[in-house]
Amino acid sequence: MTTVTDSAVKALLTSETTVPLRTRFEGANICTWIGFKHINYLVEEAILLHFAESGLEARALYTEHGLGVDLVELDTRILSALFMDETVEARVVPKAGDEDTAVSFTVTLTGERDGEDTKLVAARAKAVLRRESYIEEASEPPAPIARFVTDRLGTPVRGLQTPPDISGLDLTAATTSLSAGRGTTGPDPVLDLLTAGTNSFGWKWRIPYPYCHFSERLQMSSYLRQMEEVVDLFLADRGISVRTLMDERRWIPACPHSKIQIVEEALMEEELYTVYTVEDIFKDFTYTSRMDCYVVRDGKLVQTATGKVTHGYAVVDNRREWNLVTFDERVAKALRGEA
């Protein structure tokens, strides 16, 4: 039995952890470069290992105390590309003030470049302990970690707008059939409302079991998958799909920055409305977009997550090298939503 002691919690909140991590084969979609999603998976893994090194393994916290370790914020900057079969050193530094109800972390991934140790990734994250209520009746959490325990996931997001009122919409035809596969991009009354008058792309999709954990809810790593997939669908909708530009020019999307915050819980088999909005194009070199996720619950639209992602394009020179390029008129017009 894991005992949640004052010393274990002190180690969680004050001790640094350094661990070697190896990039995964799955994340190498283009040549041997690892995509932003799997880089973020390494950040998440480093934090979970920090919990374990402190004597507070995620499995034990759940099975013995009914507490699920959940990341609710993740903000990652990729400073240099990571590659397949590469071992990096992950350094986790925790921080939590006396009144904080979440544990904050900075995570850096360091690897060898040109014979020198180089910072490759810099990330910030927040984690909470979600009280189990689905399988068994919730019990009182151990006192040393009680302030980090919550009954529902969610973090306050400054400047977040109230979702629009959908009470007047006809939702009878707004159900995503199981035969629809990846869902629908419309026509759908909720998507139409969420994307009206903006440079946005909307996608509705049924949350599947493989995207959930702790029996019921969508997890941070799945929002990363959602962000990656909505970009893929957006680019295809604008006529510049990933494969199209790879075949024609050997261009691939490159992502130096991503950020996701969970606002409210999204549950297994709910229909998730994801809106991807291009906000800014910088000198035809990078563009920043916002991802907002919603569910319809009790006749109301509830926002469950928000995030931002920055993309550029890289040209694949050969199997080992790539270089960033500026957008041409075709790509720039597609990103701006111009015909």
Rank of each mutant, 00 (worst) to 15 (best):
L171S: 08
P142W: 12
G111R: 09
V103A: 00
E136G: 11
I166T: 02
D188L: 03
A173D: 15
E140G: 04
S133L: 01
L160E: 09
P156G: 09
E112T: 14
M84S: 11
P141T: 01
A123H: 08
D114N: 15
R158W: 03
A143C: 05
A96W: 05
F83R: 13
S139W: 02
D165G: 02
E140Q: 14
T185C: 00
P94K: 11
A138I: 01
Y134R: 12
V190D: 08
M84N: 13
T110Q: 11
T110S: 10
A102F: 12
D98I: 09
T110C: 07
P187D: 10
P189D: 00
E132Y: 06
V88T: 11
I166V: 13
L109T: 07
L82C: 08
A174L: 09
K119Q: 12
S139L: 13
I135A: 15
R131N: 00
T176C: 12
A174C: 12
G97F: 07
L178T: 07
G115I: 13
F105N: 05
V93G: 00
S133F: 03
R182N: 05
A127R: 05
K95H: 15
D114P: 01
D170N: 13
R182G: 03
P187T: 07
G111I: 01
L178I: 09
T172M: 04
E112L: 09
S139T: 15
G159Y: 09
E112H: 09
F105S: 05
E116R: 15
P144C: 04
E86G: 00
T184C: 10
I135R: 15
L171I: 06
L191K: 06
D114C: 05
P189I: 02
E112C: 03
D192T: 12
P141E: 07
V107D: 13
D114F: 12
P187L: 07
Q161R: 14
T155S: 14
L160Q: 08
A180M: 06
D188G: 02
S80Y: 10
P187V: 09
L129H: 07
S179D: 07
E116N: 14
V93I: 15
V157R: 06
A102S: 14
T162Q: 15
L191Q: 07
R113I: 08
S167W: 01
A146I: 05
A146G: 02
T150S: 11
V88H: 07
P187M: 08
T185V: 08
A102C: 09
R131P: 00
S104T: 08
I145N: 00
A146T: 02
G111N: 03
A174G: 14
I135F: 12
L171K: 05
G183E: 04
L178K: 04
P156D: 15
D192C: 01
S167I: 03
P156I: 06
L169V: 02
D170A: 05
I135N: 11
V190A: 10
L129K: 08
T87C: 03
G154D: 05
T101N: 12
G97V: 11
